[in-house]
């Protein structure tokens, strides 16, 4: 019997004895919330058993709002708390102007990006040398770039997060190796909460998953020294989201 079968056999043997269902163990019954008291053995539960399915659980989580205006307000508030530089502008041209100002202020010499209609236009408007990661790149060159400019799949009002992936956002390193990550986004990419975000990601990629999907929430951070917040631990010190 190989190791896989040995582990599976041990699991199956262990599971022949049923365990009490959640919320009913020992003296914790008062927390059961009144669900499932009548049920006895747990071992007979079908796979996928839930008293409350997950799409119902979202009602108990922090909320992202129900209208686009609420989503925008919630995303802006979350960004401020996370120290994400979030700017919602009226047009793509305004976003490019904002990007040029940031580049001038920070003295960017070279930026990194990937090919996409939005990023191509932004890089062209920036008028600076650019490294495109598509099809492979020397890691040292990417490390030397002052900014990484990417698109994203979806933005989440509830948490102030955005989702990048290894196929359509320039690979695994572009959004995390340069010290400044700039995300270009459209307003219709902003959804209410994580449940919506995962559904959107599945609709986009479910047929053929990229090897990496990352939910990015604010710039890189650490509190490992005396629980004092420091930005830019290993990833970007700055995260800018330009939305129009």
């Amino acid at each position: 019997m190989n190791a896989r079968d040995r582990i599976l056999a041990r699991i199956r043997e262990a599971l022949t004895v049923p365990a009490p269902k959640p919320g009913s163990h020992g003296h914790a019954q008062e927390h059961d919330g009144g669900h499932g008291h009548g049920d006895s053995s747990a071992g007979t539960r079908p796979i996928g058993f839930r008293n409350r399915p997950v799409h119902v659980a979202r009602a108990w989580l922090p909320q992202g709002g129900s209208t686009p205006a609420e989503h925008l307000a919630r995303f802006a508030a979350a960004s401020a708390e996370l120290k994400t530089d979030f700017r919602c502008v009226d047009s793509e041209a305004e976003a490019h102007a904002a990007l040029r100002r940031i580049a001038d202020d920070e003295g960017w010499r070279r930026v990194a990006s990937h090919h996409h209609a939005m990023t191509d236009a932004a890089v062209a408007a920036l008028g600076r040398p650019a490294l495109f990661t598509d099809g492979g790149y020397p890691p040292d060159d990417l490390e030397a770039c002052e900014a990484g400019i990417t698109t994203c799949d979806v933005l989440v009002a509830q948490t102030g997060s955005l989702v990048v992936n290894s196929r359509s956002s320039g690979g695994r390193a572009l959004s995390v190796l340069p010290p400044h990550h700039v995300v270009l986004a459209r307003r219709d990419q902003l959804v209410s909460d994580l449940t919506d975000a995962f559904q959107r990601v599945e609709a986009l990629h479910g047929q053929q998953w990229p090897s990496m999907i990352s939910l990015v929430t604010g710039p890189s951070r650490t509190g490992d020294i005396e629980r004092i917040l420091v930005l830019g631990a290993h990833g970007p010190k700055k995260l800018t989201v330009l939305m129009w």
Binding site: A78, G170, A173, P210, T217, G218, G235
Partner: peptide
């Protein structure tokens, strides 16, 4: 925290058409 800074899903090694990994 509301959610942690990076929550990353990995589904495989570098796939065809990807630039790194």
């Amino acid at each position: 925290q509301t959610v942690t800074g990076y929550n990353t899903l990995y589904g495989g090694p570098r796939q065809p058409g990807e630039s790194d990994g």
